[in-house]
Design a protein around this nucleic acid. Structure first.
Lengths: 338, 338
DNA sequence: CGAAGTCATGGAATCGATTACACGGATGAT
DNA sequence: ATCATCCGTGTAATCGATTCCATGACTTCG
């Protein structure tokens, strides 16, 4: 593969001049410029990004560590992240943590070894002292969707509080009173937050959330299944199950169906995170949709702000309720306020 | 960030010795070894992968360019690819071509600029002279799922021929005679292959595949919708629609539902590529499942074989029919042979 | 006892770029 | 005419590793 030396030789100039042309430095004669251009084309020369990175100490690459690629929500997020990054002239390396802290750490370390310019993380369950170290070490970093308390970096996320309130209002209006939730891992911020918001929304209707109606899930389908089986085995099973993410909702649907029950006649189901497939399930599932595109874009912008020395902003965007048929008759209006 | 020089100074040895310890070269005294190890720990030193790559001319990184990350089939494939690569000591950089040849070329170029050790590609529609150049240029390369005729690199893929034959047998047994297909882009190998296999399978039952029953899709949901609308507008609409991938099946389902028809009573639906959601759609969709995990693993192994100087193998694995309810009453046995 | 070999180690070249600095020639101001 | 500027260019240092080669100490064997 041709190097800058070959180009210089072919064009009859020094490597410095070639480099100047490549980086469009003003101080190059038109003549030299065209000769270099010609040599570049003739040799099919492409600058070696590795060498360039070593010298300039920047890779124009961002790392994205997400908790689970198979979760359509994160896949979509990753897509938007890459899109925005590309628009800003950066590449993205994705690491899939598979909800395992040690895998997450592995990816963070590998990414750091490659001297990525910045790190976008949606932290998995469990504590990672590494993450705090990295942030303190000065690596540009932004949390997206989830974050770690005590680690001082910008957070880009959706606030589901209002949407959850709308959901509870919707369920209450349909006559449901015994509501249960399949929570995410306690150690994830989104896990906790959704339970808290749910509990608070219930309080407005003088409803409570007893412990037996809080199932401990891990954001994976299997846990949704297990928790739901336990709910169904209760002397008085809940009338509606609210899953804190889409995969657990899927598991719940499985469990309900395996028990020979029908949605929504026998039991209702709602989910956090809306995905295209929820339109096509039997029945279509009522869900809370996050503005994934905006989230991904904002996260990249915040990160690049840090990388390029501007001051970044934490961003919180609202999620919104999308009513379908999995909790009972659809409301005539999409947003039912009380 | 600490460099090898800092470690050397701290340990009171030369950088050469540090490097030897790091690469577990035998010829280092136990004493020096422990001093270096201590210095590494004390400084939290991690070797700069960029510098190392420049010197050794290998990045221990593979590039994966896939046609559409939002397609669950490819997401799953990517996951397995990363898993196997990690097991073999490689990282993976994923590029999403979004079914756009120019984006695909962009990613290939960027990946090459970063001097990845090998390239795994599932080529999108359209011709890319770049790809042929790259292969000829000696970059280790393997096609996965789809390939480009005329480009001489190993191909790892699933053969759907038998499964499609099984599908047609299943449909025929259920009494269906007017069968239509939503094809993939003509320029993709999988696009063509599936149509041909379908046509051939029909021939065994003396059925034909008229042109009006071949819809030109692009592997995206929207195209499935459009093609299906056209099918439904036919004086004699098909009794079953077979979509050549899962997203187009989704689009077809939309169109069918928008037309006020029911699956499978009014029209049947089957898809190539099985995904978890097909169990939960209304009704569950009959599909042809590819051995995604094996495909991903085999592709990485073949690529790493080339990278490390062994001779690689093309691999073809069988796909299999998974009968559900979207084409009519489920057959009692899963594989209906005539 | 001396030659040959082994082993641990350090110096320095190298990978392919970027960039500070020096230099010579042209231009412009006084 | 003289001196300061500016412009285009090249030389060489540099980034952080790896690795060839030389060196000196020590072992081994005839």
């Amino acid at each position: 593969m041709a190097s800058i030396k070959d180009v210089a030789a072919q064009a009859g100039v020094s490597v410095a001049t070639v480099s100047r042309v490549l980086n469009s430095h003003p101080s190059v004669s038109p003549d030299a410029r065209t000769r270099v251009r010609a040599a570049v084309d003739a040799l099919g020369y492409r600058p070696n990004a590795v060498a360039r990175s070593l010298r300039t100490d920047q890779t124009r690459t961002l790392g994205l560590v997400i908790s689970d690629v198979l979760n359509p929500y994160f896949t979509e997020l990753a897509r938007f992240v890459e899109e925005e990054a590309r628009a800003l002239g950066y590449s993205v390396i994705i690491g899939n943590a598979d909800e395992r802290p040690e895998l997450q750490d592995h990816h963070v370390r590998t990414l750091l070894d490659r001297r990525i310019d910045g790190l976008l993380v949606s932290p998995a369950d469990g504590d990672s002292s590494l993450m705090a170290d990295v942030a303190r070490g000065g690596t540009p970093m932004v949390f997206v969707d989830r974050w770690m308390p005590g680690v001082d970096v910008p957070v880009v996320r959706a606030d589901g509080r209002d949407a959850i309130r709308d959901l509870v209002a919707h369920l209450h209006a349909l006559g449901h009173r015994r509501l249960a939730i399949i929570a995410g891992p306690a150690a994830t911020t989104t896990g906790n937050e959704r339970v808290e918001a749910f509990r608070e929304a219930l309080r407005a209707y003088a409803l409570t959330l007893p412990d037996v109606h809080i199932g401990q899930g891990d954001f994976q389908a299997d846990s949704g299944r297990r928790v739901t089986e336990r709910f169904l085995a209760l002397p008085e099973p809940p009338e509606v199950v609210f899953a804190a993410d889409n995969l657990m909702a899927l598991g719940a649907l499985d469990a309900i169906r395996a028990a020979g029950l029908r949605v929504p006649q026998d039991i209702g189901l709602a989910a956090f995170d809306d995905i295209p497939w929820f339109v096509h399930t039997d029945p279509p599932i009522t869900a809370i949709a996050q503005p994934t595109g905006e989230l991904g874009r904002a996260a990249v912008r915040a990160l690049v702000d840090i990388v390029e020395g501007r001051s970044p902003q934490s961003v919180t965007l609202p999620a919104r309720l999308v009513v379908r048929r999995s909790c009972g008759e659809p409301a005539p209006d999409r947003r039912s306020n009380r």
